[in-house]
Amino acid sequence: MIINHPILGPRDAAEFTYLGDASLLNRPDWQAADAADQFYEYLYLRDNPAGEHRELWYHEQGDRSWLVVTRNTLTHEISSVELASDVARAQGNKK
């Protein structure tokens, strides 16, 4: 597979390390009343879709960017690649 890195251009997927569903960006609030349940769902439950999947890849043998890759799990076709930090900021992850 080839991942079109937003900064570096197309790179072989073998340069990357895969983590999983991009929902791992949505780390819950530790002080929420149901924090235990929220953390359980956050860490363990997955949509695991057959089709479009937003997922985290790390450019381990490259610039060490975390990327959010949108890839079809049936065809492996990649439709978008974004810097995870941009996605995280856009959804309100701050400090």
Binding site: E60, R64, N93, K95
Partner: peptide, 19 residues
């Protein structure tokens, strides 16, 4: 060494990008 560094980068870029 490798996995901890990867994890710390995850925390930095994905969880707390404004730190």
């Amino acid at each position: 060494a490798v996995s901890v560094y990867r994890h710390m980068e995850f925390c930095r870029q994905c969880l707390w990008p404004d730190l």
